[in-house]
Amino acid sequence: MTLWSETAQTVMAGDLVTVFAYGTPAGGVIAIPVSPTGLADRAAGTIGVTTSLAFSHKLRHILRDPRVAMAYHTREHGFGASAGDGFVLAQGVAAVGLTPSPARLAALAPQVARFLGDTPAGPFWDWLLREYHEQRVVIDIAVERVTEAPAPVPVLASQPPPSRGSTPRHDPAKLFRQVARLPHRVLAYRGEDGFPVIVPVRVTGHSAAGLLLEGPLPAGARRAAFTAHSFGPQAIGLSNRICTGWLDVTAGVAVYAPHTVGGFTSPPLRRVQLAVNGAMAKNGIRRARRDGTLEELARMTPVVAHHPDRPPNTAPGDG
């Protein structure tokens, strides 16, 4: 049975940058921009994305709870502009391949080059990018649901507030100024079945309580992730703000209180961005080997957490 239409396939196989969301043990969600390089197989019902083994924090979360989501929402600088500007959300169960074969990584290379451009070669670049290219992780996602049109806003019970309180921990006015120049904005939260839900939002202002948002958001209060980003051709010149926090929707007014704010802005220079990526991967792999993270990840196995009668994993803390 086909899970999505040909139009959605054009979008999913063509968007240069998407947003990928996964859950946290505290019942929250993290949403990050990624470049899936067209990994969408409609016949098999799968999508995918690759990442570096150096970014172990993300992999831990996915191995603990493999319910994930991908939002295709940009069309900019990609290959899916002919499909229009619709928002496509895919939700599914991730399988993390910590040690993909060299043959599989080699097979992905043409896709990566098509979307992100050719990689410079030579002794220096081969050394700098060795871990970035060789220590890749493939995340295969068995899609369970694709939403191609605006879905009804779900009715969800409110979550208990974080132990440290629900008020902003970062200045909403500063965050508002930072995201004002970033055109792509989404919010993500945990749905009733535990899968992340990602929706487009507009930022209409701010107050001492947080950012003021408009979008298809459920009433009540809950942990949520807010992400704003921009990018140039071949995903060069990235800029993003990646937040976790608390969403309160009361009487139709949505206020987002930021608790953590991360992100970066890189210059629109391909070789500079590649050098930063290579250095981060090299240092991250060295640190993961030294502190035992690689062995920990190898011991972890995905939990079967998507059964509708089984509640999502929860634990005290903020996330």
Rank of each mutant, 00 (worst) to 15 (best):
V253Y: 00
Y72E: 06
R190Y: 09
R286C: 04
L89E: 01
P162C: 04
A228N: 00
Q91L: 01
I32T: 15
R287Y: 10
V276L: 14
E131A: 11
V186F: 11
Y189G: 06
T293R: 02
A81P: 03
A40M: 07
H184Q: 07
A257Y: 05
V253R: 15
T250Q: 14
R287V: 09
T265S: 13
E134I: 04
A8P: 01
A180G: 08
L217A: 02
T18L: 12
P218Y: 06
Q135M: 14
I285G: 13
Y256S: 02
H73E: 07
R286L: 13
N240V: 03
G284E: 03
Q273R: 02
L3A: 01
G117Y: 04
E296N: 11
V261R: 00
G245A: 03
A298E: 12
R271I: 12
G215R: 11
D291E: 12
Y189I: 02
I141Q: 01
V153Q: 03
F55G: 00
S101C: 06
P172G: 09
A275H: 11
E296A: 15
A43V: 10
L187A: 14
G317K: 15
Q273G: 11
R310T: 13
H61I: 00
A180T: 12
Y256V: 03
R286F: 05
V34G: 00
L175I: 14
H57E: 15
V249Q: 04
L105Q: 07
R241Q: 13
T227M: 08
A209H: 11
H306F: 05
R136E: 12
F176P: 01
F115M: 09
G45F: 00
W127V: 05
G97E: 15
V253N: 05
L294A: 13
